[in-house]
């Protein structure tokens, strides 16, 4: 695994963790994990690596991606971007656009425009 890929995973892991915990505040952990599962399923055909996301009652993690060093992951940045976009679009239906936008802005501010 190239250093750049590792960096991308680390950067997005922090972002996903923040997104997960913010969503769980409003939706609860079960609905949040269901939302993650839905988005993973949607993207898994195009980006098989998304199946390596680990999620459960404790939160979300990219650890399995980081340990699979022998595999080369293409389009990681694109995969994470698509994940975040799709996630937020469903979140908007659940929380209303206003609150979803609040969460998106908060994440953008904290992660310096990563999404």
């Amino acid at each position: 695994m190239e250093e750049a890929a590792k960096d991308i995973i680390v950067r997005y892991e922090t972002l996903l963790k923040e997104m997960w915990s913010e969503s769980a505040k409003y939706l609860g952990t079960l609905s949040t994990n269901l939302l993650v599962e839905r988005v993973v399923w949607e993207l898994s055909q195009e980006y098989p690596a998304v199946r390596l996301l680990k999620y459960g009652p404790e939160g979300i993690s990219c650890a399995p991606m980081q340990v699979n060093e022998e595999k080369s992951f293409n389009d990681l940045e694109e995969m994470f971007m698509r994940f975040v976009t799709r996630y937020v679009s469903i979140l908007a239906k659940l929380l209303g656009h206003e609150r979803a936008e609040e969460i998106r802005k908060k994440i953008i501010t904290e992660f310096g425009g990563a999404c």
């Binding site: 939706l27 609905s31 269901l34 939302l35 839905r38 239906k93 659940l94």
Partner: peptide
Amino acid sequence: DKVLDLITNALIIIYQAD
């Protein structure tokens, strides 16, 4: 409240309900 939330959240997520 929690039951109502769970029911509606799950349906929006699974079925992409409007």
